[in-house]
């Protein structure tokens, strides 16, 4: 928790989609164990920023270092970095041809060469953690959205990542299912996981975040601890955004 070097270091990153600039001179550091919540209007670049951390989006310029590995250095195998960075998506993206248990064990068995028995055991522990032991043999199509997302979190955790990225994890859920997913995320945060979360759940941000990042038009406008951020936002655009959503 007291790491001197940041586990994620994003320096002056620019990202273009054609002529559209999605990220503009973005810099952000995340310490090990820190929880960072990124908020902002849609199209502000917050998801793009998150996706650059495990290189689902390649950056146009700048530098990103994750756990000491420079993503721009071709000698670093991006796949090994990704093993350490779990990701949870808005649309869950569970493997639809695999059971819940197989969703959790596929990567540990194939990538970490874990014996099946050991992978199964670990998967059942994780399913217990997200409260879905009884769904181990089900296919994703048989689950509710909230259950799917909890499985997706467990699947990411099965690789024992050092960092967890959440890309609007509750945005595709029916309102009554949001709570069960946030609950799992809060537990994870309490256990000391390093988390970067893009979300519209301000309650979660207030409760869990060490710092809140506000983005607009591809730029980071403001970074502050949640109390200061929500009660005394410094920038006009932050104030306007908070007025609209709170």
């Amino acid at each position: 928790m007291n790491a001197v070097n940041p586990i994620i270091s994003i320096q002056n990153v620019n990202k273009f989609f054609g002529t559209f600039q999605a990220l503009s001179d973005v810099s952000l550091t995340v310490e090990a164990g820190q929880k960072v919540v990124v908020i902002g209007p849609s199209g502000s670049g917050k998801s793009t920023l998150l996706r650059t951390i495990n290189q689902l989006e390649e950056i146009s310029s700048g530098a990103i270092v994750v756990d000491g590995r420079d993503l721009g250095d071709p000698k670093n195998d991006i796949n090994r970095v990704r093993e350490e960075v779990g990701m949870v998506f808005q649309n869950f993206n569970l493997f639809r041809h695999k059971t819940v248990l197989e969703n959790l064990t596929l990567a540990p068995i194939k990538l970490k060469k874990e014996p099946k028995l050991q992978a199964d055991k670990r998967a059942m522990e994780l399913l217990d953690k997200v409260g879905l032991v009884d769904k181990a043999g089900s296919y994703p199509v048989q689950l509710s959205g909230g259950q799917e997302q909890r499985v997706a979190i467990a699947r990411a955790l099965a690789m024992n990542p050092k960092i967890m990225l959440f890309d609007e994890p509750t945005s595709a859920l029916d309102p009554e299912m949001i709570g069960e997913v946030l609950e799992v995320m809060v537990t994870l945060a309490r256990e000391g996981m390093t988390m970067v979360v893009v979300t519209h759940e301000m309650g979660f941000a207030r409760e869990v975040a060490d710092s809140v990042v506000f983005m607009d038009e591809g730029k980071i406008v403001e970074i502050a601890p949640p109390n200061q951020f929500f009660d005394h936002p410094q920038h006009e655009r932050t104030q306007k955004f908070l007025e609209q959503i709170l």
Binding site: R82, M87, F89, F95, K110, A156
Partner: peptide, 27 residues
């Protein structure tokens, strides 16, 4: 096959050909 499937696979650390073999082609 939805792009999200390969993104999920890549994010776990599978490379492109493993993603094709374990996730995309079976579906």
């Amino acid at each position: 096959i939805d792009d999200g499937q390969s993104e999920a696979s890549l994010s776990l650390g599978f490379n492109r050909s493993q993603t094709m073999r374990y996730v995309i082609l079976p579906q």
